[in-house]
Every structure is written in structure tokens, then in C-alpha cells.
Amino acid sequence: MQGTVDGFSYGLVTPLVAYLMACLGGALGLRCTTRALLVAQPSRPAWLALGAAAIGSGIWTMHFVAMMGFTVRQAPIHYDKPTTFASLGLAVVMVGVGIFIVGYKGARGTALFTGGTITGLGIASMHYLGMAGMRLNGKLEYNTLTVGASVVIAMVAATAALWAAGQVRGFLWSVGASLVMGLAVSGMHYTGMAALTVHLHGTSAPTSGASPAELLWPMLVGPLAFLLIAAVVVMFDPLMVMGNPDWTPVQQKPGVPAHPDVHHPAQRPLRPVHQVARRGSRTPQNR
């Protein structure tokens, strides 16, 4: 018996909130990636790790907020907690691999393609592992072509978002990249859900047990708290918030700061010779 699936039990509320969660995680994570391209080597891994955790938490939160609106009318839904949290860990790790590639190799060419592909596969893997943690009196089946389309959407949009983050063009540019990342996650999620059919093991009357929202909210508290903390970190770093259109990613060398301190005599940029002479150095003919 095929179950009656409803992915929008709360109307447009869950899709909109889910998209905002994906955009929030994307904005924080991609901004951290942008910041990592502007700092010296010792600080770069910390920014990239924070970015990976923010994006991973954002896409995981997006998925399960959207799942609050998913019901099968003939069968109650429960979630296996170990599998559910394993999907969060998988998202953070795979997104982290993609972000570290872009953070160290640059957002172009082979590095961008590889990082975007791994990040997109991380988004898709999180989704389908999270779905594997769903428990109900039935079997989940997927249309192979639609699943493939959902994975392609994730990889293409994630690559575009990482490219935009690597342009280092200020805050508004990163906001646009986060909107693309949110689109990647949401588009992948609902395309993947469109591939799903539920075959029930037997007939059962609708039950009045706990709703998906009641089951999922306790699990979302931790990732939501982390996103708020990450947002505070971003807000208290002026370079992260204001941006600078003149910034360019630096070519790091051992012992050389990403951005020299112009107030330190040893790190002041040298002026052209003709400017030095013009500012008061006397030639033998003037003495």
C-alpha cells in the first residue's frame, strides 16, 4: 500500500524558515571562508573550521526544519537519534573538506571544481543519511533520475557559492553567495523529496502521537545555538562585517603576515624613489 505523503503540512511556513536557516548557515560559513583568504596561515584553519561548522549546521537545520512539514497520513514518523546526528557530523566533515580545499588552493580552476563537488556531495549525503534515520511502518523508495538531479543541483549551486565567496568583494557579495547556498540546499532537499515514495507494510489508521515538529525541535536546539554563537563572532569582527572592495587574497609565505601593519616601520610599504626625492632629500647640486 502506498502512503499518502504531504511535504507541506504547515503550508509555506516550513519551506521559508528552512530556506532562511540555510541562508544563515551559508552566510556565516562563506563569510568565514572569505575571511580565511585574508589572514595569515596560523589563523586560517580556525576560520575555515568555523565556516565548515556553520554551513554544516545550517544545512542540517534546514533539512530538519523542512522535515517538520513532512507527514505520511497513514503512519506516524519517528527519528533515530544516532543516525540523525551522524548526518550532522557527515555534513560538517564533507563541507569542511571542500572549504579547506578552496581556502588553501583558491576559488578557481580545479580547486574550485573539487571543493564545490565535495561540498555539494556533503549536502546530498547529509540529506539522504538524515532520511535513512526516519522510522515509520513502511519502506522508502526513490526515483533514481530525480535523486541524480538533486545531487547535481547541490554540486552546481555549492560550486557557485564557493566561487562567490572566493571573490572577496565585501559583505553584500557574501550575502549573495549565501542566498545561492540556501538555494542549493533547499533545491536539493525538495528535489530529493520529490523522488520519494512511501510503501506501507500494512494498513493502519492515523494516530495522534507526537508530531514531527515535537520530535525534531529538541534535536535542533544545539545547532541553532551554535549558529547564534557563530553570528556573534562574525558581528564582532569588523573586517567580516564591513568588507573592503580592495581586498585581494594573499599569497602566503612563511613568517609574512597576510596584511602588513603600515604603522610598523619594518612593514611600511616602500614609496617610489622619485617620491622620496621629491619629499625633501637634497641632491649635491642643491647643497
Rank of each mutant, 00 (worst) to 15 (best):
A161E: 11
G148M: 10
F85H: 12
V233D: 05
G96V: 00
A75Y: 01
L24A: 15
H78D: 11
L220I: 13
L224W: 10
A111H: 01
V92F: 01
A160D: 06
A18R: 01
Y79P: 00
T207S: 02
P260K: 13
V13M: 09
G3M: 03
G98R: 00
R268T: 05
L228C: 13
S204P: 05
Y128T: 10
M131H: 13
T283C: 09
W247R: 06
V72T: 02
V17P: 09
H264F: 14
I123V: 07
R169C: 08
M242C: 12
A46V: 05
M240E: 15
A75F: 06
G109F: 12
S57F: 06
F171Q: 13
T203N: 09
R44D: 04
V147F: 12
G115Q: 03
A86M: 10
V93D: 04
T197Y: 09
E141S: 14
T84P: 04
R44P: 05
P249S: 05
R287Q: 14
A91Q: 03
L183S: 07
E141P: 06
V92A: 11
T83P: 10
R73A: 03
A210T: 11
Q252N: 09
V273K: 15
G3D: 04
A205I: 12
Y79W: 04
W247Y: 04
G148T: 05
M188L: 04
A160F: 09
V156W: 09
Y190W: 07
A91M: 03
V221Q: 14
L37C: 10
V95Y: 02
A177Q: 07
T83I: 04
L220K: 10
F70N: 07
V92K: 00
A177M: 00
D6T: 13
V65Y: 01
D261T: 10
M62Q: 00
D80K: 08
I101M: 03
L145V: 14
S125C: 07
A40C: 00
G122D: 02
G202P: 04
G170V: 04
N137Q: 12
F236W: 14
D6F: 05
F85D: 08
T14K: 07
C23K: 09
V175Y: 06
M235Q: 13
D246M: 01
R268C: 12
F226V: 05
Q41P: 10
Y190E: 07
V241A: 00
T117L: 04
R135V: 14
D246P: 02
H264T: 11
A107H: 07
V185F: 04
L140H: 06
P265A: 07
S9F: 13
S204V: 06
D246Y: 11
R135F: 03
A230D: 06
G115L: 03
H201Q: 07
V152A: 01
P223N: 11
P260V: 00
I101Q: 01
A154Q: 03
S57C: 09
T71D: 12
P206T: 08
P238I: 00
P45T: 00
A40W: 06
Q285L: 11
M219L: 07
T207Q: 09
V5H: 01
V241G: 02
S211L: 06
W163M: 10
I229Q: 14
A52W: 02
P238K: 08
G176P: 08
N137D: 13
A86H: 06
G26I: 03
Q41C: 09
Q285V: 14
A66W: 00
G106F: 08
A164C: 07
A52S: 02
Y128A: 11
